[in-house]
Every structure is written in structure tokens, then in C-alpha cells.
């Protein structure tokens, strides 16, 4: 904005950035725990809302987020997670993982945040791209049909790096 123009001739209008800023985000999702699935999904959703081209690459345990058999049933465990500030021994008791998972799912739902499959759909509807890792698919003997329908393809790590040329990258 120039300093010499009066408010009448130059109304204050927010800048929504360039139509094609070229800003790009690549997120590598490598974890299959419920609590580690959300950071990538939330950041992808936020980036898309800011008009960024966004790609998610699911690898190793992150495959659980797009495997039709597991994606709706990710779990949260207290074991090995000192951030729950509970005695670690408690986490090993029968039923504790189920209870912790239930509690976490409820807290997430209470905030109006969707479960993993629905969240992935929202990301795709917002223009996000989902890719599955070739090596993880081979290790787990999974084919494209075993994966969430909106996954675009099973690709190699180098193909993902090619696709995300110039992107900012997050490894989760």
C-alpha cells in the first residue's frame, strides 16, 4: 500500500496472496499410532486451507493410516509415552490401550475433528494428494486395492521426491 493515498481511494482489503504462490508442502507419515496420525492430517488440512499444494506420503507404520483394514482402528497406548504422566506399569494392564484409545477418540471427536478415514477424505476434497510407499506395500504384501480408494498410486521414494520438487517437507 502506498502511504499517500487516502482511505477512500484505497480501501483496506486483506491480502489473500497470489493466486498461484507456488508454495508446496510434502508430509511423510511414518507412524501408525492414533496420536501420531493426527499431526500430519491437521497440518495437511491447514496447508490446503492456505492454498498450498499438499502431498502426503505414507510409509512404514504410516501405512496403517491408509490400509482399509486398519485405518479406522488406529490405537493410542500409554506404553513408552511418558507424556501421559501416568505410571508406565499401568499402560501394560489388560484393556488399558483400548481405554486410552477410547478416551483419545472421544477428545478428538469433541473438538469436531473427524476420524482418520473421514479426515483423509476431507484432505482429498480440499485438493490434497495421497501417495503410498512402494517398499512398504511390498513388505506388507499389499496392493492398491487394499488401500484407501483416494490414494492416487503406490510410488517409490524417489518418485515422491520428484513430485515434491521445491516443497517444504515434514517427517512425522
Amino acid at each position: 500500500m502506498t502511504t499517500s493515498t487516502s482511505p477512500e481511494t484505497a480501501p483496506l482489503v486483506p491480502s489473500f496472496g497470489e493466486a498461484e504462490s507456488g508454495r508446496k508442502l510434502a508430509i511423510i507419515c511414518s507412524k501408525g499410532n492414533l496420536d501420531m496420525a493426527y499431526p500430519g492430517l491437521i497440518l495437511a488440512n491447514a496447508a490446503l486451507g492456505e492454498g498450498m499444494e499438499t502431498h502426503l506420503f505414507f510409509t512404514f507404520w504410516g501405512f496403517d493410516m491408509i490400509n482399509k483394514k486398519t485405518m479406522g482402528d488406529l490405537k493410542f497406548t500409554m506404553l513408552g509415552n511418558t507424556a501421559t504422566h501416568m505410571p508406565q506399569g499401568l499402560g501394560g494392564l489388560p484393556g488399558m490401550t483400548a481405554m486410552a484409545t477410547h478416551q483419545m477418540k472421544k477428545s478428538i471427536a469433541d473438538l469436531g475433528v473427524p476420524e482418520v478415514p473421514e479426515f483423509l477424505q476431507q484432505i482429498v476434497d480440499s485438493g490434497g494428494h495421497l501417495w503410498a510407499c512402494r517398499m512398504s506395500a511390498d513388505m506388507q504384501h499389499l496392493e492398491k486395492d487394499d488401500l484407501y480408494d483416494e490414494v492416487e498410486a503406490i510410488i517409490s521414494a524417489s518418485e515422491f521426491i520428484e513430485k515434491t520438487d521445491g516443497a517444504q517437507l515434514l517427517f512425522i
Binding site: 496472496g17 493466486a19 486451507g49 492456505e50 492454498g51 480440499s126
Partner: peptide, 14 residues
């Protein structure tokens, strides 16, 4: 969601 991105491109919420 798709429609919101079409009607208010790039940054629909804002």
C-alpha cells in the same frame, strides 16, 4: 468442501 474450494479459491475459510 470441494465446492467451497471452487467458490472461494485458494483460501476458502478466510
Amino acid at each position: 468442501t470441494k465446492q467451497l474450494f471452487t467458490m472461494f479459491p485458494q483460501k476458502p475459510a478466510k
